[in-house]
Computed example of a mutant assay.
Amino acid sequence: MAPANALMLSHALVARLTVPIHFNPYHIYCLRNVHVTWDGAVFHNLRLFGPSIVHRRFRSRFQDTLLLRQWLGEKVRVTGTAIAVCHNQWSTENYYHWLIDSLPRLLALRSAYPGIKLLLPQVSDIHPVPEFITTSARLLGFPNQLPLNSQQILNAHSVVMPTLTATSLTQRPELVRQVQQELLAALGMEPTQPFRRIYAARAAGFLRNLRNEPEVEEWLRQEGFEKVYFEELSLLEQVRLMRETEVLLAVHGANMTNMLFLPSTSKVIEIHNKEYGDPCYLRLASCLELEFYICPCTGVDPRLGNQSDVVVDMTLLQAITNLALTKKSKCANFS
């Protein structure tokens, strides 16, 4: 699906955003006598199990002293029952990668291994597993959970690990929609008439900030947008807010995953680094059949690529937002 405002964008940007996606089969592995790190990397003796890491380039993270911790680190031993691992190095704390990468893996796992104990990532022994992880796993049928922190190594007789159901930063539409429907049903969310305009602001210290944010916020306030920090809300609070939202506007980032909970008539506007931004949220909107607008912006530091702060062209943002606000029906796809 192309952005709803594709005619306002360059042909080169639209082409980069709409590269076709191909899906490979996914699998469930049953592994015996293995060690597992808190972030989902699986070892047998000194051999790393490739499908347990995000990319081949991550292999260098799991060498040397980390391998020795299989014998020297704090062990958590599990025998007599299987443990499921459905996360990797990107989904330990990241809202997008947990909801969109890991939850479909839970659906794949559930039909074959209902009730299995689920390993969950815990950054440290001080901080708990993020609430959105524990809650969403429970809602999808996995209340039996085993937290593992970054100082521990799991030693398990039997580990069950579904692979990613789609390459990271892409999504299988049918599984994304199933995750959406099951979470909304489990939380008792009824259809609503959306009325709120939400600006998802990025918390201090995060990447991809708006260098001219005061100017942007002042104009959005005049247009009736509410500024929200999703990081301050529980999963239930985020879902409730999205069910009331007619327009979600955000800088490219994990907060945009909350479009998963928007009504089907809602619209999404992404402030997007035109040189480096990934189209994962356009793809997600396509899975959900949501009207999606791109506001291309300029990064202030090309060395940082997609992690750079950006400057918003106010004239362009106003034109795109006004188009989204005034359009009464879903826009035809441009392809």
Results as ranks from 00 to 15, higher is better:
A2T: 05
A2S: 15
P3T: 02
V14T: 13
R16Q: 12
L17N: 01
H22V: 11
N24R: 14
N24E: 14
P25E: 10
N33D: 15
N33A: 13
N33W: 09
V36W: 01
T37W: 02
V42M: 07
V42T: 05
I53H: 12
I53K: 11
H55C: 09
H55M: 10
S60E: 15
R61I: 04
T65E: 15
T65V: 14
L67H: 02
W71M: 10
R77A: 07
G80D: 05
G80M: 10
G80C: 08
T81G: 10
T81Q: 15
H87L: 09
N88D: 14
Q89C: 10
S91W: 03
S91Q: 03
Y95L: 05
H97W: 03
L99P: 01
P104I: 05
P104E: 05
R110L: 10
A112E: 15
Y113G: 12
Y113H: 15
Y113E: 14
G115W: 02
V123Y: 08
A137Q: 07
R138K: 13
G141R: 03
P143K: 14
P147K: 08
L148E: 06
N149C: 12
Q152P: 04
I153K: 01
N155R: 13
A156V: 04
A156M: 06
V159I: 13
V160A: 02
M161Y: 04
L164C: 00
A166K: 01
A166L: 07
L169M: 07
L169H: 13
T170K: 01
P173I: 01
L175S: 02
Q178I: 00
Q178V: 02
V179K: 00
V179G: 04
L184P: 10
A186C: 08
L187W: 13
T192S: 15
R196I: 01
A200C: 12
A201D: 12
R202Q: 01
R202V: 07
A203P: 00
N209S: 11
E213Y: 09
P214A: 13
E215M: 14
E223T: 03
G224V: 06
V228S: 05
Y229G: 06
L233F: 11
L236T: 14
Q238S: 07
L248S: 03
A254K: 07
M256E: 11
T257H: 06
L260G: 05
L262Q: 09
K267Q: 15
K267E: 10
E270G: 06
H272A: 13
E275M: 13
C280V: 09
L284N: 06
A285L: 02
Y293M: 00
G299M: 02
L304E: 13
D309T: 04
V310A: 07
V312N: 13
V312S: 14
T315E: 15
T315I: 11
N322F: 08
L323S: 11
A324T: 12
K327F: 00
S329V: 09
S329P: 00
K330F: 06
N333H: 10
